[in-house]
Design a protein around this nucleic acid. Structure first.
Length: 454
RNA sequence: GACCCCAUCGUCUAGCGGUUAGGACACCACCCUUUCACGGUGGCGGCACGGGUUCGAUUCCCGUUGGGGUCGCCA
């Protein structure tokens, strides 16, 4: 039987980073086995669900590159979808649930109490085999020992998660349930429900959770818990995917980088680890930087431009060749595109703002003459290449009997307003002679005059 | 509290009875260097603890401790 897996998020907020990894594992398993990846929206709790949240989920999955074979096409519950087992919104499947409940009721496998409908849960422990965890034998908790039955339809008539989840998995022909380990303890309920419906339950694979760096549970409120942050802060989706897949799964090779095709080929449930993993932003950043360094130039430029635009700068007003050259000087320098506006915003600003500390340190009366000499030197050049600019600066440093760095720092500040940035000589080449000279003049205008020596 | 899962450097992991316990990130030092980074070289750093089993345990079993999860008319 061909594999059918699903990602079934509840649209209560942004797509959680843990949810993103669950989706990724499902997607990879489907692709690896040649099966289908289904997206189902579990929006049964109307009070907490929003269309906007659903759209965030779709957008997030698309951004990651995790396309679904069946599921909604838009965030609208009654909107279009793909696949023949829809609707893919639980809010649209009410009839199915009620039919299932009727079936249970008629066979006395469920009963009504206080207006809610409860499922007659088995009193004995349930043993099942999890593809990742292995044999799981769950005893009843003391609370369950008191009353193991659980609500499947609330008194307001709304079906509850356990019921909808199982009913849909059944009707959508889901063969493997790959989900977070937080559902492990729910599994006996689900198995009992499947059996009550007279069918074999699907295979289960509970993947370990992603924890915060300090080992605590990652909650919605934690910074970094939302996929949105990574989308906004300039991460490359392929880097995030690469990082995420290595949290809780190991290809057992001494490599860190895997293309999507390689992942599809290698990924299997049998190598999913059994213990939780902490999220390490530093490693993600390193990995993202590596991806940025290897990225196709056109894409790097495109994403770079987008990052500048997000910060209110407008590279679109500059010639494409200039933009491209400017971004080229940032290659191998930044780890995320989010750093770009601060790192290289000077390319797209008519008026520079200056780092106050750097200004205090380098725009000093003593440096005024150095900048003037630099300006004079550069004003007379008719060749404007990095190598030549560097040679001229070093030559001047030699004449003045000072270290090149003494010139480099004030000059960088004058050109960029910052003390760090791309290669000075390359950035000057991109800026062009006219702009460089103008910026030196502007810097000079900010430097207090040389105090007369007493 | 009950129940379930888990446990190798700070972090992600390799290891599946005998290894100088390997790699990556991070950190430190040095080199490269106009800054920052990249890159290169080297270093620091780990089998949670206690019992077994065994000629021999990181590895198998039990317990303890610790972490996580679940116990809802949320999903």
């Amino acid at each position: 039987m061909s594999v059918r897996v699903r990602f079934a998020p509840s649209p209560t907020g942004h797509l959680h980073i843990g949810g993103a990894r669950t989706a990724l594992f499902n997607w990879l398993y489907a692709r690896h086995t040649g099966g289908k990846f289904i997206l189902r929206i579990e929006d049964t709790d109307v009070a907490r669900n929003t269309q906007e949240a659903t759209e965030m989920i779709l957008e997030g999955l698309r951004w990651l590159g995790l396309g679904w074979d069946e599921g909604p096409l838009t965030g609208e519950a009654t909107g279009p979808s793909t696949g023949d087992r829809g609707p893919y919104f639980q809010s649209q499947r009410r009839e199915n649930y009620l039919r299932r409940v009727e079936a249970l009721l008629s066979r006395d496998m469920a009963y009504e109490r206080d207006g809610a409908i409860r499922f007659r849960m088995r009193r004995e422990p349930i043993v099942f085999h999890d593809l990742i965890v292995g044999e799981v034998r769950r005893e009843l908790t003391d609370r369950e020992a008191e009353d193991p039955d659980f609500v499947i339809v609330r008194s307001d008539g709304k079906p509850v998660f356990h019921l909808t989840n199982v009913a849909d998995d059944l009707e959508m022909g889901v063969t493997h349930v790959i989900r977070g380990e937080d559902h492990l303890s729910n599994t006996p309920k689900h198995i009992a429900l499947f059996e009550a419906f007279g069918v074999q339950p699907p295979k289960y694979a509970h993947i370990p959770l992603i924890l915060n760096a300090d080992g605590t549970k990652m909650s919605k409120r934690d910074r970094g818990a939302s996929l949105k942050m990574y989308m906004e802060e300039g991460y490359a989706p392929e880097a995030l995917v690469n990082y995420l897949v290595l949290l809780g799964w190991s290809p057992k090779e001494d490599r860190q980088f895997f293309s999507l095709d390689e992942l599809i080929e290698r990924f299997d449930l049998s190598e999913v680890l059994r213990h939780n993993a902490r999220f390490d932003l530093a490693k993600l950043q390193w990995m993202n930087g590596q991806y940025l360094s290897r990225m196709e130039e056109d894409r790097f430029v495109e994403l770079g431009v987008h990052a500048f635009a997000r910060a209110g700068l407008d590279p679109g007003r500059y010639p494409p060749g200039y933009v491209k050259a400017a971004l080229r000087t940032c290659r191998n320098k930044i780890k995320t595109f989010g750093e770009l506006p601060e790192y290289a915003g000077f390319y797209f600003k008519e008026r520079l703002d200056y780092d106050p500390e750097a200004e205090e340190k380098f725009f000093t009366p003593e440096n005024r003459e150095l900048l003037e000499r630099l300006r004079e030197t550069y004003a007379n050049l008719d060749e404007w290449t990095p190598g030549y600019l560097e040679a001229q600066l070093k030559n001047l440093a030699g004449l003045l009997n000072i270290k090149p760095a003494a010139l480099v720092h004030p000059l960088r500040l004058a050109c960029t307003g910052r003390r760090v940035g791309p290669s000075l000589y390359h950035l000057m080449e991109v800026l062009g002679k006219e702009t460089v000279l103008r910026r030196i003049d502007e810097a000079l205008a900010r430097i207090p005059p040389q105090t007369p020596t007493a």
